[in-house]
Design a protein around this nucleic acid. Structure first.
Lengths: 170, 170
DNA sequence: TATTGTTATACTCTATAACTATA
DNA sequence: TATAGTTATAGAGTATAACAATA
C-alpha cells in the first residue's frame, strides 16, 4: 500500500518536513535506480569513493563515511565480494586493515560519478540558474556549519538502549 | 558511533543527496524533540490532525496520511491509549470504524501546530526573506506535481517481496 | 587496559499474509 | 467474492555486546 495521496503544491509549500522528506526519499530512489546498472548502491559508492585516495583503515573509513564499524564490515564484505575493493593488513598495526580499491573499483567509481552528476543535472535542471544557486546556498546555510540543521545530535532512528522499555509516546 | 565527520560547506554544496538527507533527518530530530513535550510523535500529530475534520474511516485516514493500514492500527492504538482519539463504528458499514479526535486531542493538535510553526520559523529564520521564498518555491518545483522528485514510485525502504533472495547488490 | 575488526544478536520500523466480520 | 480492520510475523536496516587478536 502507501501509494500516494496527492497533495496540492499550495498545501505542501507550508510543510517543510514533507518537502525535505520527499526530496530526500525521491532522490534516493532515483539514485539507487540509476546506480543499479553498475551493481552498486549509494552506500557502496560512498565508501568506495572515500577509500580511493587510499591508506585508510576500516575504522577511519567508517568515520568518514558516517557508518557504524559493524555496518562497514558488511559493506566491505559486499564490495570485496564484487571485486571492487580489497582489505590488506596494515604494516604498522597488525590489528588494522587498510582498504584499497581495485582497478575495477576505480572504474566503477568513475562511471558512478558520471551517473550521479547526470541525475543531479536532471533534477536541478527544472530550476532556473538563479533558483538553483539560491537553493543550494540556502540548503548549505541550513545544513552546513553552524546552521539550524547542522545537528550533531542523537541518532537518526530511535536509539535502543538495552531494555529500559520506554513508554512509547504517541 | 556514527558521530559526525565534519564536511566543509564547499564540499557539501555539491552533494545534493547529502543536503536533502541531512536536512530531512535533522529537521525530523528537532521536530520529534519539540513535540515530545506534548507526548506525541510527528506521525501521531499527522494522523490526529488529518482526523480532526472528522468522519474518516481508518482506511481513508491511512491513505491520506500515507500510512499502511497496519501501521495505522498501531498508531491509532497509541493515540487512543493516550486519550487523544476514539474509534467508533460507522453507521453505514459495520466493518468500518470512524476515527474521531477527543477534546484533549484537539487541544494537542492546536498546541502541536504552534510548536511546529515555531520550529519552522526558527529553522528558516536564518535565511533572508528572499532566500526563504526561493527555497520553498524551488522545493515545490522539485517535489510538487510534475517535478523530477514527485515520485509515485517504489517504496521508501527496500521492498521485501516474499523470498526471492535478490543477489544483494553492493 | 584499550583498540581493531568480527560475529552474534537485539531492536525498530514497516509491510505482507492470514484471519474475522461484515458487505 | 471482496473489503475493513486486526493479528502475527517476516524482512531490512542498523546498532549494541561480546570476543579474539594485537597494541
Amino acid at each position: 500500500m502507501v501509494l500516494m495521496a496527492v497533495r496540492s503544491d499550495d498545501e505542501i509549500r507550508g510543510d517543510l518536513s514533507y518537502l525535505f522528506d520527499k526530496a530526500s526519499q525521491a532522490l534516493a530512489v532515483r539514485m539507487t535506480a540509476a546506480l543499479a546498472e553498475l551493481d552498486i548502491t549509494p552506500r557502496g559508492y560512498c565508501v568506495l569513493s572515500k577509500a580511493m585516495p587510499g591508506e585508510l583503515t576500516q575504522g577511519e573509513l567508517a568515520e568518514i563515511a558516517l557508518l557504524d564499524k559493524t555496518t562497514m564490515v558488511v559493506t566491505l564484505d559486499h564490495l570485496e565480494g564484487a571485486g571492487l575493493a580489497r582489505r590488506t593488513p596494515s604494516r604498522t598495526d597488525r590489528r588494522a586493515r587498510i582498504v584499497e580499491t581495485t582497478e575495477e573499483g576505480d572504474r566503477v567509481v568513475a562511471n558512478a560519478r558520471t551517473i550521479i552528476d547526470g541525475v543531479y543535472d536532471e533534477v536541478l535542471g527544472v530550476l532556473s540558474d538563479e533558483q538553483r544557486s539560491v537553493l543550494l546556498d540556502a540548503l548549505v546555510g541550513l545544513v552546513g556549519a553552524g546552521g539550524p540543521l547542522s545537528t550533531v545530535e542523537p541518532t537518526p532512528n530511535a536509539p535502543r538502549r538495552r531494555s529500559q522499555r520506554s513508554s512509547r509516546s504517541v
